[in-house]
Computed example of a mutant assay.
Amino acid sequence: MSNGDKAADLWVFGYGSLIWRPGFAFEESVAARLHGYHRSLCVFSHVHRGTPERPGLVLGLDRGGVCRGLAFRVAASQAEETVAYLRAREQATSVYLERHVSLRLDDRRQVRGLVYVADRKHLQYAGKLPPAELLKLVRQGRGQSG
């Protein structure tokens, strides 16, 4: 497995808002698949879509399945700054674990990429909720991001 075009470059996997609003400079983006995780409404949101008193529910990456998204290649010179930005953005309440995982790019390359996955031990991990509870939490979700 290679790390893409340059060994020192950073790859970042995006599956939600990182696709349409990455917020960092990148050299290329390629459609990609992350095996072993799937998108799931499994995270109680206390910041972006809710508050601790009135949580919303947001998508996180949970174990099992496959997730399609985009892989962004960040120049080595921007890697440290990009990771700092992503930690501030994704780790507001430390509900995600930072991982370096294997990504399969649609152009057939395989690279190691940075991704944030739901921490099943965190108090904000919602797990698999009944449909009525999912709907209630999504509808009541109001926070910094809407």
Rank of each mutant, 00 (worst) to 15 (best):
E98F: 00
V30E: 07
L137I: 07
F24S: 03
R89T: 05
R87L: 06
Q110E: 14
A31C: 12
A71W: 06
Q91L: 09
N3L: 14
S94A: 13
R68K: 11
Y125E: 00
D119A: 00
G16E: 14
E81H: 15
R89D: 00
P22C: 13
V101M: 11
A79V: 08
L105W: 03
H122Q: 01
S17N: 09
A132P: 01
A126D: 01
A92T: 04
V138W: 12
S17F: 08
L129D: 08
E98P: 00
H38D: 13
A88T: 14
R87P: 04
L134E: 15
R139D: 11
V30R: 08
A132E: 13
A75E: 04
E133F: 04
E98M: 01
Y96K: 01
T82S: 07
G60I: 00
S77K: 11
K136V: 11
V12R: 06
E90R: 11
Y37L: 10
G113V: 06
D5A: 12
G127P: 03
V43E: 02
L41N: 08
T82I: 09
P55D: 02
G64S: 10
R87E: 14
R112P: 06
H122R: 01
S29E: 11
D5M: 11
E27T: 13
L114D: 03
R49I: 10
V115K: 02
R89L: 06
C42T: 08
S29P: 05
E80A: 15
L41P: 01
A8N: 15
A7Q: 13
H46G: 00
D62G: 15
Y15S: 05
D62M: 07
L59Q: 12
G36D: 12
L135T: 09
K136H: 13
W11N: 13
K128I: 11
L57E: 02
R89V: 02
F24K: 02
F24Q: 08
S102D: 15
E28T: 15
G23F: 05
D107H: 12
E28K: 15
V47A: 07
D9I: 03
V58A: 12
T51I: 11
L59C: 10
T51L: 07
R142H: 14
Y85T: 04
L57T: 02
L114I: 07
A25P: 08
Y96G: 00
V47R: 03
